[in-house]
Design a protein around this nucleic acid. Structure first.
Lengths: 311, 311
DNA sequence: GTCAACATTTTGTCCAGGACAAAATATGAA
DNA sequence: TTCATATTTTGTCCTGGACAAAATGTTGAC
């Protein structure tokens, strides 16, 4: 930990934490591509200037979007930011009133106006109801915030503030729907070991709890084997797993296949999240969600298949 | 990711994730102490047998408790488990009825009886009220669960289940106390970059929100510099930081001192958590909490100092 | 045209073993 | 006791080589 809050450069371990790039990767990039090019401190250890760390962050985001290091590592910060803009664009295009609201919310996040943020979200929740709030506000807002973060327009605490507030509102709303003790289906929610994002799980829970499903969330990062035993032992009907956009698609697919084969046939496996777009056909026996809106329909379908009576 | 759910040995990266011991550390222990002694796979890469990983986990826990690698790395699993038992003992010793309740809760956690777990906690919350629930149930339960986890009596998903349920209950209860728009003091809650545990923050929030404080949580892992700017820019009166027992004491102390010096004098800095026990005198200008029970008193003291009128 | 099989390049992670500063402990003085 | 100083322990960093897995490019069959 730096003794000064102001420091001229970060040690390699801090850069690893900040950018998510492994120490080995940072060193091998330096060797291969000549970037980053940290200065050395008195002990001959790498010290990364803040601008280089910023650029590394941008590069990291672009790689998560499918670009390759060698293609982009030589570009300057402006060009990288431009590419992220391009990628962020194809979204949006909804109701202009809603868009304006999103812009306002983003402003609240940026200016740390937590009161206004909370109030605005709460009002939207009241107006729309939980399910529409999730699909029409939270989901697109995640994209807006994600894009802003991608472009470096948000700092860490802003992103945290946003996530916390959304979580608070969703959790509160979910717990207001006092679930049926033994609602069906019983759904086990969690993520794979390298996935830290819990928001997707909450969105799922918020969408299907009002439909009478009985959700139990294990939070993030549950080992595969443990998901299997928890699902089998807990009389669950469905295991639902979510993946954020940064999660490696291959790892998700392999993991899901492996989990599917280890799970009793009568337990359904549901999966969704940005990492799985277009991967449905590679995952036989698994219900892949391209959008959160598909959840209620899938729930109905499940009930028609497995239950004589509707809930 | 392993293709098989069953595998004979884990690669070094998986062991790093599982045990929290850096790859470099694993390799240097092997060189110095002869343990762990992984087999090699076809590519000559380390493959750690599960028993060795289990032992590493125990060693990790003991090191977190202040023991040193060279003293314990040669012991067998049984001896290590025994030492953890010793350390876990000095707790307990409360109301026998309450102890029985804790044992029951622990059983629910172990057996994944989420319904019973939720119901029992909810009942205790109703009976005791939020503040007493936190100090008389959540705090000691954390110890009980933490000790069980330390001894390897709980698996990952059980620990997750417990944490999730407590979080759900606390968040719901907190949001029921619709905070005064501009309650005083305004408190910014967060943790340092290497601290992932959010439960401490929620406990603080649950304890002081009913007292009329206005809490904003940034969640875990906010960079020091960002805490500073967020606090200064957001008109906060108090910054509160929590540390779990695994957090390195030195790092906490250095970080707090640094944060204190970077923060305007009129903003108070509060800190608490297992990592800080007995560290109060090393932290002048910082309010260090040995127990969650001290929070309401400190809040009163703050109000007497900084406000003419009580809230 | 799509798809599968194969060849090539790119890329991340692993390895060894040396070095060294920071943390923990032991030792001695006030 | 409490402080300052020496010694040991311990985690992290270093270099530069190696190589498998992933991504991409190519070919040929359908």
């Amino acid at each position: 930990m730096n003794t000064d809050l102001q420091s001229t450069g970060l040690p390699i371990a801090a850069v690893e934490r900040d950018t998510g790039l492994a120490k080995d990767t940072l060193r091998v990039w330096e060797r291969r591509y000549g970037f980053p090019q940290p200065t050395r401190d008195l002990n001959g250890e790498r010290s990364y200037p803040l601008e280089q760390v910023d650029k590394l962050r941008l590069i990291r985001r672009l790689i998560d979007q499918g670009l390759r290091p060698s293609k982009i590592i030589g570009l300057d910060v402006k060009a990288l930011a431009g590419m992220l803009d391009e990628i962020g664009k194809p979204r949006d295009g909804g109701d202009p009133e809603r868009s304006a609201q999103f812009a306002a919310i983003l402003k609240f996040v940026r200016l740390h106006l937590h009161e206004d943020l909370r109030r605005t979200l709460q009002q939207l929740l009241m107006k729309l109801g939980l399910q529409r709030f999730v699909s029409e506000v939270v989901a697109p807002l995640n994209h807006v915030v994600g894009d802003a973060w991608l472009r470096g327009e948000l700092e860490v605490p802003e992103e945290h503030l946003y996530t916390e507030q959304i979580q608070n509102i969703l959790r509160a709303a979910i717990s207001a729907h006092t679930t049926l003790r033994s609602g069906r289906p019983a759904v086990l929610l969690t993520t794979f070991p390298d996935e830290q994002h819990a928001l997707g799980l909450l969105m799922v829970e918020a969408t299907i709890t009002p439909e009478g499903a009985c959700c139990v969330s294990l939070g993030t990062q549950t080992p595969l084997e443990d998901i299997r035993t928890a699902a089998s032992g807990g009389r669950f009907d469905i295991v639902a797993v979510s993946f954020s956009s940064a999660y490696p698609a291959r790892q998700a697919i392999d993991g899901l296949r492996s989990l599917r084969s280890g799970l009793p046939e009568e337990i359904s496996l549901w999966a969704g999240g940005a990492a799985l777009h277009g991967a449905a056909r590679k995952l036989p026996g698994i219900t892949v969600f391209e959008s959160i809106d598909a959840l209620p329909g899938a729930l109905d379908a499940w009930r028609r298949t497995y239950c004589a009576t509707q809930a």
